[in-house]
């Protein structure tokens, strides 16, 4: 049983998988939502880097008017020639919709696809002060694997969160030293 089940997602929201055909409709809203809390915006290339290659690992929450309420952007690829690693790069939910399980739902949708597509492990980083995000991932089964000193541009530190999905992963050697997404304060 997951604690996240106690959340009742607002019924009027629709959750849809991204597709590159949706770029003109949603990309600017996605950028806006994610940049809102960043001290420095990501360039368009960062979004396209993820969305063009792993559009199916991006999920959006839309309200009845089809405006963007939340989004998760991720990727999945072999990590240094070893395990298949999923990586949750960005997660954002509009402020007035937070605390209603929208982010959890989005993350679960991305994680489900990763698992289906044979991920061995899933990683991400969050700011150490971002209690809500940490709780979200911990409830799902992620552990804090390490702390990253002054990881973000604002000088804050991060936790690397990890989730092993398959038995085979356990015996793999060391994790990478380098974070996957160069630091910006997260917005989730």
């Amino acid at each position: 049983m997951s604690d996240s089940n106690t959340f009742i997602a607002p019924p009027e929201l629709r959750y849809i998988q991204y597709h590159s055909s949706k770029e003109s409709t949603y990309l600017s809203a996605i950028r806006q939502l994610i940049s809102k809390d960043l001290s420095e915006p990501y360039s368009i290339y960062v979004y396209r880097y993820f969305l063009y290659q792993w559009g199916d690992l991006c999920f959006m929450a839309l309200d009845e008017k089809d405006s963007l309420i939340g989004v998760v952007i991720s990727k999945l690829e072999p990590h240094r020639g070893g395990p298949m690693r999923g990586y949750i790069a960005m997660l954002a939910v509009r402020e007035e919709y937070r605390g209603k399980g929208v982010a959890t739902k989005l993350v679960r949708m991305a994680v489900d696809v990763m698992v289906e597509r044979d991920a061995d492990e899933i990683a991400l980083e969050t700011e150490v002060t971002n209690t809500a995000a940490m709780k979200l991932y911990e409830r799902l089964g992620f552990l804090r694997s390490k702390r990253l000193h002054r990881y973000y541009l604002n000088g804050n530190s991060a936790f690397r969160f990890m989730l092993f999905v398959k038995e085979s992963t356990a015996q793999c050697g060391d994790e990478d030293e380098n974070p996957q997404l160069p630091p910006r304060p997260p917005s989730a």
């Binding site: 049983m1 997951s2 996240s4 679960r108 994680v111 698992v115 409830r139 799902l140 089964g141 992620f142 552990l143 694997s145 990890m162 989730l163 092993f164 999905v165 398959k166 038995e167 992963t169 356990a170 015996q171 050697g173 060391d174 994790e175």
Partner: peptide, 21 residues
Amino acid sequence: HARPYSTPALRYNLRMRPFLS
């Protein structure tokens, strides 16, 4: 304890990873 993803044994292995080899 049980979580939606991963298993207790997998989480234990993740925690013990620095020492496994």
